[in-house]
Write a protein that binds this DNA or RNA. Sequence first.
RNA 1: GCAGCUGUAGCUCAGUUGGUUAGAGCGUCGGAUUGUGGCUCCGAAGGUCGGUGGUUCGAGUCCACCCAGCUGUACCA
Length: 503
Amino acid sequence: MAEKSKTSAVKARLPRGLVDRPAGEIKAAERMLGVIRGVYERYGFDPVETPLIEYTDALGKFLPDQDRPNEGVFSFQDDDEQWLSLRYDLTAPLARYVAEHFDALPKPYRSYRAGWVFRNEKPGPGRFRQFMQFDADTVGAASPAADAEMCMMMADTLEALGLERGQYVIRVNNRKVLDGVMEAIGLSGEENAGRRLTVLRAIDKLDKFGPGGVAALLGAGRLDESGDFTKGAGLDPDGIDRVLNFTGWGEQGSGSGSIAGVSAVTLSNFAAAVGTSVGGAQGVAELTEIEALVAAAGYSDRVRIDPSVVRGLEYYTGPVFEAELLFETVNEKGEPARFGSVGGGGRYDGLVGRFRADPVPATGFSIGVSRLMAALANLGKLSTEDEVGPVVVTVFDRDRIADYQTMVQRLRAGGIRAELYLGGSGPKAQLKYADRRNSPCVIIQGSDERDRGVVQIKDLALGKALAATIEDNATWREARPAQFEVPVDGLVEAVRSLLGGRP
RNA sequence: GCAGCUGUAGCUCAGUUGGUUAGAGCGUCGGAUUGUGGCUCCGAAGGUCGGUGGUUCGAGUCCACCCAGCUGUACCA
């Protein structure tokens, strides 16, 4: 008897933060991507694809001059010692692509792409190290009309996927306004760069900690439940008040708390909050124009100016957007949970310019496909049921595999998904196999049927329904529920009509 | 990175003050039924008890260190 060598066996295991995708999920995802693609195409965007791997320096903010690329990015060295990385978003590779083919592309250049991106960081619930994004970008258009279009297209996309109005909102802010406010409270200048970042991070944490927690982070700092202390921005009480009021979480009536007609109120609030800041005033002007375009197109109920949107701290230079789902749901533990952000974007006027002498304005939006898919599944807007399997032609007589194979080919030629049972087990196991494959029916031809020139067709779904009323196995087998026979020549037609009667 | 919690069969878990051969349910496979998927019944396979070292006559159980996972937090293009 051969010893099983357990110690030498490689353990089958998936690296953490990564997931396998079974058939049902892949098919559901394909349907969903098809819907998104349809909307983007209708808006006049064209597909473009770039590789999963880029030179590390092309990906952006990461140090060409350090010998080790930043953590958070999967990187390795080519045989010529150059650093390569897996892309961590789709925007930086697009900027590289546009810069490399700048003269050949029509400007403004409008494109979309779906693809896997990778982040080498700690995974969490709903956060993976490989996930899919679906982006659309307009490169070479400085007009706020390009930003407004992005927001409206996202709204259209979410509705095309089955979300109803009121279940989501596209929130819009402007990085220049945020900078203007900080300038107004005395945080301008190089020496305050760190504190500005802390303030932005604090604002971004509203959904997690609420206004009280944000106030703590703006001031001295915050102690979390585990006893960990996060150092704050160190603003004085007046500065904290002004930031909170600006965001609308203080006593002011604007901002994320209200819904109808807020944008106009928020904008006037902004104008006051940025004070004399030139950049801030410019940001307010851009938002005002976006708001006017959105209103004119009838999207004011879905696209809203909101001071709490911060987004990527590094490369956005103007308007920033975020698509947020508003409905509550329950997680697997039965606790109420919110899906929150399922996508975002903004204007990144500096990104293409890193590769060229002259700046190139650009704006785009990115959808987190996996997260949005989870939300849609939760809402029942995405069918994740098992697909109907193939018709299985069973092998009751090992010597006549060629005959069975012929039946399979006839079914396939008739446009029916079908397969020959290729295992080595007996009839019982074959039926069990077909059941697990979720086959609509199996084809049976033993010697009896062969002699009479017929085949048995067994409707598995109907049989399952009938089984509920039968208790003992002898009767169940005797009755052969939902099974009928047809002449061999009528096989394809009979299967087709059986399938046709299915929902 | 920091903090807390948890590691026993493929999965979910039980395992007494430290005591003989570590159990259950589900799942898997086989049989009852060699021409028929469900139900039922019978049976089988499946474990370095996360790892290493220590205490002890004796460790799944106690101690130390390490590893992994989960949760929170930091960071997040």
